[in-house]
Design a protein around this nucleic acid. Sequence first.
DNA 1: ACCTGAACACCGTTCAAGT
DNA 2: ACCTGAACACCGTTCAAGT
Lengths: 221, 221
Amino acid sequence: MKAKNSLNPALVVESALRIVDEQGLEALTVRKVADEFGVTPMALYWHFSNKEALLDAVGDLVVSTVREPDPKLPLEDYLREAMGALVEAMRSHPGATPLLLTRMLTNQVGRDITEATLDKLMSAGCDAQKAASIAHYALMISMSLVSGQPGADVTVKPAEREEAVAAKLAILQSLPDDRYPRLRAAAPSFVDCADAAGYYGDAIDIFVNGVMVDLRALARS
Amino acid sequence: MKAKNSLNPALVVESALRIVDEQGLEALTVRKVADEFGVTPMALYWHFSNKEALLDAVGDLVVSTVREPDPKLPLEDYLREAMGALVEAMRSHPGATPLLLTRMLTNQVGRDITEATLDKLMSAGCDAQKAASIAHYALMISMSLVSGQPGADVTVKPAEREEAVAAKLAILQSLPDDRYPRLRAAAPSFVDCADAAGYYGDAIDIFVNGVMVDLRALARS
DNA sequence: ACCTGAACACCGTTCAAGT
DNA sequence: ACCTGAACACCGTTCAAGT
């Protein structure tokens, strides 16, 4: 009935990523992917040892779209570029963001970017531990910016976002103005991200500036 | 057979948090909590409308342990104290960390800390949007530091951590030394956190210093 | 008011069997 | 080599029923 070799692993991964994009990471199910190919859930287990392996492959697919910054850039610029490139790739697939954590140390592209980042930091005087910390901070911050972008909650399905945003705003606006005046004023910004470019740019600036302050202090001692 | 009123909601939440601490967030199951009280899963639905409500309550329990910094502290110190207090509370319950995101805007304690933080920032010249961004960054960074602390992966059950760490390290150490010298040197730090206090302190320093640079630039314009 | 019992629509995964 | 079918041990949740 069913043709053999109908299941191209690369297509399966693409399909899984599409589901993550459209319905969120939690909605990704082995059975759903199988349905997309008109196949039994167990068919996937021939190509992927388990669901985790499939998720890793989805993560690899996203990491492979990360633009690699020029390794010849000076540290400060390289850091900015690397974080920007990560954010850009993840914003195209916000639901897949958590999958990138492990990939930066196991995937080809991820490892190359990590190695270059470490090299810049250690050339600037960091020891291995400090360099690892800073590289790790940069990744975690990039990830959490995307995962936590106001109005783009990863745990909420794309379809239900507008209502969720409106509901949150209504709750905050109903707070007593004498006790929470600042929170009420800032409520729209907490609930939805009016200026996404600014949201990411400011955070990267703050982090990179902080790192540079840290490194200058290191150089003085 | 079973005594009535045997289910104290506060005790249920504590029990749920204990399960999260011992087995991780993903292992928390309505059925498991019910078993702890020798009760049918459905018994919990009388006290919590669904699992999400139970999780929110667990989040509230953790937020309630966050030490509230002195609101009279100057901005820079307040930021440090607030992030430190958040990190401290979350480190006691790493598995529950993701639950804090929503709680900082809905819970009493969370709202008070958020309001104080916003007030400091806006008094220092930020508009509402910038203040919201920075407060949000501070929370996201604190959360991601704990969630992503090397060697304390939240997605790995506490019991299986040692092996997981050793396995990761072995993989990184097997990389070609000519291509990934920095990564190999930094591998132990990526895989396990030798100096937790330094890991958190450095990140908070970097962020707070970055914020101060940003605010000084703002004041000049 | 508070809890049980049975059932439903899901999961990921095993294992043996088909082609 | 590649996929199916049936089954297992789980999920969260509904709904009616008990006390």
